[in-house]
Amino acid sequence: MRVRFGIGLMALLVLSGCSGTPAVPQGVPSAPAPLTTTPAPGAGLGEQPPASPAPETAIVVPDVPRQNSSIDAQVTREVVPPVNISVADLELDMPVLGMGVDGDGAMDLPQNTGEAGWYRFGPAPGDPAGTTVIAAHVDSAIYGLGAFARLREVTIGVPVTVRTADGAEHRYTVSEVVRTPKSDVPLGDLFDREGAARLVLVTCGGEFDRSTGHYLDNVIVTAVPE
């Protein structure tokens, strides 16, 4: 008892030294680049099909993709949202709600620490590519400590199951656990839409700054499909 408490106290005394500066907004457009024109004499469309450049001698009508642009012909992306996440090893089992962006441009999260939020503008578990981001408040003055607080204890290889609204269970295996100062979190990479399909679980951790009411770190758990 005394020994364990001593370790806990040491952990309390460790300062990670990270700063509380806000994360840099992603995707801010830079100043317009100058318009530069490089004349390409003879570079006709027929000689430059997009996928596989044909030899310059080829005289064929290129296979340009075509679609009906009529507003009635538009198909909207079908998304099957996640509704539950469970990590048996952590005794974590909680509902998942689709969430967007708050007034400051940050990811919005359910106030209830017993509920997780899925970034609904990004990929979903059934999507062939990109990162499904599920995050939850680690604590709340009303709801207390949340189950996502136990993400710190997760180890590589632990199974994670996400159930989607169609009843399908998507199984993942934890591949990485990191704790990063919020100012260093690679948000563009974390919310990736094109890379290999993966699940990223996020909560807060590290030091707590009472003057701002924010933790200084994000705990980021990456899991890959089984």
Partner: peptide, 24 residues
């Protein structure tokens, strides 16, 4: 393909899970 990531993930507000506090 024009999307931007959110500016952050503020996922705690009380300090119950903190390693330590700063600012006090």
């Amino acid at each position: 393909g024009l999307s931007s990531a959110p500016h952050g993930i503020p996922a705690g507000s009380v300090g119950l899970a903190a390693d330590s506090d700063t600012g006090s």
